[in-house]
């Protein structure tokens, strides 16, 4: 839409543009700069071309971390989306229960990420943690520090606990926007509970679900803080996701060049996958 001109509007946008430039564009350029050079400290740089990129792309360590990320995102999407829809469907639509449920649902979202990590780190400990201790007392051999499977379960349960609420709230917003007439018509048409979900609720939630899946995918793919706090990427490399690997490379080993190349590849993967997700779902949406 070409609206009537008003050049003053651009002045309003200016501060935002500057902010974005400082916070995103300039750091990104720095990263690009590092990714094609080598340094041994002392502020001396040597041209490295695409070496770092080919190194990273052919490194098994990178492949493993990428696979872990994809597996992790896949699992949490498979759990959080259906679970979120299920909870949203069962939340009250009116009455006193509404504010109560909404506040209750929002609580995990309000906790800072590193605190979430800390909570679960303590919660899962077998000596003093309520969860870890109880499980062991019940005879389960649970120890996220030693056992890769247990570490995965802990990280996934933590993420589900932390983020399912987001899916719930988005779905709930979609559900309450459906006019009553639809439910009434379905009742009169003799539709089953499943039909109501399949033909009314799901189609009307389509758009918010798209947003939920995208957000959850992007966030889970970039997950860092919580597993870092809980498992530190271990045991071994079992929960070393791309972001953790990246930090290990950049800060732990101070390999700025490879780390920069890795960040860019990481960034491009997220961009690409998000785009694929979005396109697939939007085309699906258009087809109906």
């Amino acid at each position: 839409m070409d609206k009537t001109w008003n050049n003053k509007a651009w002045f309003m946008v200016l501060p935002m543009l500057l902010l974005v430039a400082f916070s995103a564009v300039i750091p990104l350029m720095t990263v690009v700069n590092y990714s094609v050079q080598d340094t041994f400290g002392n502020n001396q740089f040597f041209w490295a071309g695409t070496d770092w990129f080919s190194d990273v792309l052919s490194s098994p360590r990178f492949h493993d971390a990428l696979m872990r990320n994809l597996l992790f995102s896949g699992i949490i999407l498979l759990i959080e989306v259906p679970l979120g829809i299920f909870i949203a469907l069962n939340m009250p639509r009116k009455g006193l229960g509404v504010p109560f449920c909404l506040v209750f649902m929002s609580l995990p979202l309000l906790i800072p990420w590193n605190v979430v990590g800390t909570i679960w780190q303590v919660f899962g400990r077998i000596d003093i943690g309520l969860l870890g201790y109880t499980l062991n007392a019940l005879g389960f051999d649970y120890n996220y520090v030693n056992d890769p499977f247990d570490a995965w379960v802990t990280v996934i349960v933590m993420d589900v606990w932390h983020w399912t609420s987001l899916v719930v709230l988005l779905c709930y917003a979609g559900l309450v926007s459906i006019p009553d007439a639809y439910y009434q018509a379905a009742k009169i048409d003799g539709a089953s509970r499943w039909s109501v979900f399949r033909y009314i609720q799901l189609p009307k939630m389509n758009r918010v679900l798209l947003i939920a899946v995208l957000l959850r995918f992007m966030d889970s793919f970039m997950i860092y803080t919580e597993p870092f706090v809980v498992t530190g990427g271990g045991p071994g490399n079992a929960t070393t996701f791309l972001s953790i690997d990246l930090v290990k490379t950049a800060i732990g080993q101070f390999d700025v060049g490879p780390a920069a190349a890795m960040s860019l590849i990481y960034f491009l993967i997220i961009l690409l996958l998000s785009w694929v997700f979005y396109t697939v779902m939007v085309t699906n949406d258009a087809k109906g």
Partner: peptide, 23 residues
């Protein structure tokens, strides 16, 4: 009203061209 700008043509108020003027 001036909410949209026409693709072609002019809008005149009392003979004055106001085509690009915002609402």
């Amino acid at each position: 009203a001036g909410l949209d700008r026409p693709t072609r043509g002019r809008v005149l108020v009392d003979g004055r061209d106001v085509t690009g003027h915002p609402v």
